[in-house]
Each structure stands twice: as structure tokens, then as C-alpha cells.
Write a protein that binds this DNA or RNA. Structure first.
Lengths: 242, 242
DNA sequence: CTAGCACCTATAGCGTTGCTATATGAACTG
DNA sequence: CAGTTCATATAGCAACGCTATAGGTGCTAG
């Protein structure tokens, strides 16, 4: 069994590494296994990827592109919060489908290794939350909400991966998902006073305006004016009591 | 520099492994490093721990005991939800203080390796949530709430570990923490009708009664009666609309 | 068509890793 | 004091990540 064919050795190495990693069940994967499965000898690996970790980084990068593609692949429903639910579910499903890859991406994260992936995933989530904020459905800053939701999403996915596949209970995911979304979302039909979350509608409106401004690139204010204006808005929308 | 002294070799091995692991910054730690620092030769390690992984498991177990001790170490405040906040913060602080150990415990979790730790941590959280449920402050089953909160707690801690220490923003933790607690908690002063979460007070009362029953070991019902009664209670407290 | 030149790959082997077959010393038991 | 058990040490194996060196391949230049 070898991954021969017409593919260039670099690709064969990537696929061999991905396949072995996916079926390794946590056991370490040796460069010899990889090069043998790829039908290639050792120095080729080091020529193309410099390092064993370099090869694994490439595998992770490819996996992450797949993840991002999956996150973007559904049409926006017009209901941003509903889209965020789908994003969450996509994330969990990705982790359960490729647990080993997921553990490398999000489980073994260290400050010196790859926070870039986390930043990209956060940006993806924030992008969607901006729409919710612009529609006045958000209770907090989109960036903070994105970080918070993603963190919970990662935690849930890791917990589910840790469980034996037979007794995996996806209710943990939906429950945590809805809890997070509920907590960061403004009441849709709350009166002019404080809603159930304790945030005043002033705060909600400020957040919505902030998001709308950053999305529209309005040029009615000069850049210095805009900067100050946004700073005030930020102060309002993060004030503890409104 | 060696960890000599009067301690038995087994302890010296444990401490050496823990110390090297803590300062390894993710780099692999070799058995030779460990045995040298412990002032012991190779077979001693295998005699006591069987395996490199066995030694690491022992380190993790010790770390987990420290974690549990930290989680139990504060006096209950009488406000269960406030205690859960402190539990959450303790968890995050433990992870930030011993990131490498934490990553081994919660970052590299696999179904075949150590879900026992997760189960214990969940039990710890559930224990506290039972008090909240008994006080009528809970919106969902204590067990589900515990799993959900712990998952978010782990996710947040991993995210914070992944950030460079200089730009760590603990607001992510407090915000996610309060979001989770808010989402699973019943409104303290809501009327007899539905609260902000859409759960009826019947559900909250059922959950509270359930928790109180399981805590008190009341023997007013026979075991078979109790079993059926709890089943009904469970059905009520998990009904979608109440 | 050939010379030169990058580029890619292979042979062979270095130092280190996790681990063990075997032997030696110390401490208790009869 | 003989025998047994536990704990440690010496020496070395197979497998690991990685590389110094060299050989083949496809280009463009003359």
C-alpha cells in the first residue's frame, strides 16, 4: 500500500502525513512511516518542509482551509444568530470528523506555536457577529462575543472528542451553544428600559451603530473625527450599567 | 543541579518530571533528562512507573489532586452561584499557573487516554451546582449544566494559555463565565410566569426538588417508588416548554 | 546537440530517544 | 546464617529525527 501515482512527492507527503495522523489514535507518527507510505525517502521530506513539524504545520494549514471553507459554505440565512448556530455546529462536526487534526489545531495550542489559527477562526466568527450587531441583536462587542463563543465552542468540541464515540451526547453542544448565544444577544422585543440581561437599550443601540459604522466605511466624518467618535461609542457600549 | 536529598527515588522522579515538564515550553522531555535531574538511572524509572507515559500520568494525577484541592479550598459562601464563579476562576488560574500540565490534562484529551479526569472535574462542578439547584436557582439539570460550564471553562483557559502572557485579557474569562452562569440560572425574582429564559417556574421548581431529593436521601418513598418519581421529575424538568 | 545550472531525490550514517536483559546490592524472613 | 524479595545500576538494542554528500532530472544558452 503506497500513495504512488502521478502526484508530485510534496503532495504525496502531505497526504501520507494527513492519513497517518488521522488514523494514529494519538500515537506518534514517524517520518519513516510517512516517507514509506509516500514512496519517498527521507531527505525529500526535509527538502520540502524543512522539518517534521514543518510538514505537520502544512497538514494543519490544509485542514484549516478546509475548516474555513466549511464555515463559509452555507448561504447566509438573513438571521445572523441562526447563522452563528450553524457555524458552531460546523465547528463541532469538523472536530468530530477529524479529531486528531483538531487536537493538533486547538488542543495543543501554545503561545509560541500557532495562535494565528485561533485569530483567523475568531475573525471568521466576528465577521458574522458584526451582522448581528448591526441588526441590534447583540449585547456586547462583536469581537469579545466572538472570542467568547469560539472559546466555548472549542471547549465543547474537545470534551466531545474525549468521550467514546458511542456515548457522545450532542446535547452538550446545542445547550452550550444556545446558552452562549442567549447570553450575548439582546432581547428582540424588550422595552426601552433594561432587558433581562441588565444592559440598557442604549448600550445595544451603541453597539449596533458601532458595527454599522465599521461595516459601511462612511466618509461623513474625517478620519480623526471618526477615531474619536468610535472611542466614545466604545466607552458607552462597554459601560457596566449604561 | 540535581534533586538529591533524602527523598526516595520515586518522589525525586516525580518532581524532576514535573519540573522539566513545567519548563519545557512544549518541547518533548526525555527520560534521560528526567533520570539525570532525579539522580537516578534509567531502569529505576521503569521499575516504578513502567513507562514514560506512566510517569507522566502520575504527574498529571498529582497535578489534578492539587487542582481539586484548590477547587475545594474556599469556604462555601452560601450563594452557590457565587461559589461557581470562584470555581471557574480557580480553574483558569490553575491553567495559567501550570500551562504545560494543563495542556496535558485537558488539551490532549483522547477517548482512550484519560476521560477520568474530566469526569472527576465534572463531578466537582456538579456537586456545587446541586446546591444551586436545591435553592431553585437552576434552569437545567445540574449534571448538564456542570458539563456545559466545564467545557466552556476549559475552552477559555486553553485560549488564554495560547495567548502571549503579556496580552492576556482575563475579561474573556469573566465574560464567558457570567454568560454561562446567566444562561443556566433561573431569574431570582421572576414572577410566576415564564422568566427571561423561556423556562416556566414549574421546571425550575422540579429541578430544585430533584436536587433536594437526591441530596437528602429521604426514605419516605420506597426505592422503586422513588425511581419512578425521579423519572417523572426528570421528564418534567427536561420538557422543552414546561 | 551540448554545456551548464538549478532543482529534486537517494544512499548511508550520526546522535538521541524510549526501553530492557542482566546483574548487583540492600533489607527482611525463616 | 540461607533464602527470598525489592530496588537500583551497567550496558546495549531498535527506532527515532535529521543531515552530509552525491547522483539524477529538466531547463535555458550557445
Amino acid at each position: 500500500m503506497s500513495l504512488d501515482g502521478q502526484l508530485p512527492p510534496k503532495m504525496r507527503l502531505l497526504r501520507a502525513a494527513a492519513e497517518l495522523l488521522a488514523n494514529s489514535a494519538g500515537a506518534p507518527v514517524s517520518t519513516r512511516q510517512i516517507t514509506q507510505l509516500a514512496g519517498v525517502s527521507a531527505p525529500t521530506l526535509y527538502h520540502h518542509f524543512g522539518d517534521k513539524e514543518g510538514l505537520f504545520d502544512a497538514v494543519v494549514a490544509a485542514g484549516f482551509e478546509e475548516y474555513v471553507a466549511g464555515e463559509r459554505d452555507f448561504a447566509p440565512s438573513g438571521q445572523p444568530l441562526e447563522d452563528i448556530r450553524r457555524m458552531w455546529d460546523n465547528h463541532v462536526q469538523f472536530g468530530l470528523n477529524q479529531p486528531e487534526l483538531y487536537l493538533v489545531m486547538f488542543g495543543n495550542i501554545r503561545p509560541e506555536s500557532r495562535p494565528a489559527i485561533v485569530a483567523d477562526a475568531e475573525a471568521l466568527m466576528e465577521e458574522m457577529l458584526n451582522k448581528a450587531a448591526a441588526a441590534g441583536q447583540l449585547n456586547v462587542q462583536p469581537r469579545e462575543a466572538a472570542r467568547s463563543i469560539l472559546a466555548a465552542n472549542v471547549g465543547v468540541t474537545l470534551m466531545l472528542i474525549a468521550e467514546p464515540a458511542t456515548e457522545r451526547n450532542l446535547e452538550l453542544s446545542t445547550m452550550t451553544r444556545d446558552a452562549m448565544i442567549f447570553a450575548v444577544s439582546a432581547e428582540p422585543a424588550s422595552g426601552p428600559a433594561t432587558g433581562g440581561t441588565g444592559k440598557s437599550s442604549v448600550v445595544v443601540a451603541a453597539i449596533a451603530l458601532n458595527a454599522a459604522l465599521q461595516a459601511s466605511h462612511s466618509d461623513q466624518l474625517s478620519s480623526s473625527e471618526l477615531k474619536l467618535f468610535l472611542e466614545w461609542l466604545h466607552r458607552i457600549s462597554t459601560s457596566p450599567a449604561g
